[in-house]
């Protein structure tokens, strides 16, 4: 137990090291943790995530969202509520919360509510087959049988990758087109080999 606790604590650093140390521009990394529900079904649930965002082109602003005004209002409302929940404050003025919520930020936030059962979704597929899944290109994401991949494409992703590890799956997403890299897969194996 002490080992797994230690690993849980360093999960964030591992995700950060993976993204910040990569040559490619990854937008986010998520660790989907494997566990079993009350019925003994294997489930991949949120372990931790690191959101880097899109490449800042030097303008100091986040990439604008393609969402409608109504959708933005909805996102801001949810963010305000989550902010109150976390901070315990009901302060109506928080400029950061009221700023536009980009598509990838929203995708990352929504991911926190998701889980994958019995090999479902991109992470489930990678875990179930013990084999990485690398989907590069908007067209391939849009036509994937996995809803998560299609959802990623809708929110502006061009590349989604799921790499299985000892007790979960590392997922990376990018708004850029990134071709398969054995270097990244090796890094995941080293950083997320919790049994070693």
């Amino acid at each position: 137990p002490s080992v797994s606790l230690l690993n849980q604590e360093t999960l964030q650093q591992r995700l950060q090291a993976l993204i910040e140390g990569a040559r490619e521009n990854w937008t986010y990394a998520i660790f989907w943790q494997s566990s079993y529900d009350y019925s003994g079904t294997a489930v991949l649930g949120w372990g931790d995530g690191y959101y880097k965002g899109e490449e800042d082109k030097g303008k100091g602003k986040l990439k604008a969202s393609s969402s409608t005004a109504a959708e933005q209002e909805h996102r801001k409302k949810v963010l305000r509520e989550l902010n109150s929940l976390i901070s315990g404050s009901t302060s109506p003025t928080d400029d950061a919360v009221d700023e536009e919520v980009t598509d990838t930020e929203w995708f990352f936030l929504v991911s926190m509510t998701q889980s994958f059962v019995n090999g479902g979704g991109l992470p489930g597929q990678a875990f179930f087959n013990s084999s990485p899944v690398w989907v590069a290109g908007s067209d391939r994401l849009a036509t994937s049988i996995c809803e998560r991949a299609r959802q990623g494409q809708v929110f502006g992703l061009q590349t989604m990758v799921c790499i299985p590890s000892a007790n979960g799956v590392v997922e990376l997403g990018s708004t850029e087109l990134i071709t398969q890299s054995s270097d990244l897969m090796n890094k995941v194996r080293v950083l997320f080999n919790f049994n070693n």
Binding site: Q8, W46, I86, V97, M112
Partner: peptide, 29 residues
């Protein structure tokens, strides 16, 4: 509701803090 699992709560807190940092990031002036 307030029953947010601890892993998600920590991740969310970090996400909101980082977002605040990014948005209030000092301008070149």
């Amino acid at each position: 509701n307030g029953d947010l699992p601890i892993a998600r709560k920590k991740s969310l807190q970090r996400f909101l803090d980082k977002r605040r940092e990014r948005l209030t990031c000092a301008s070149p002036y």
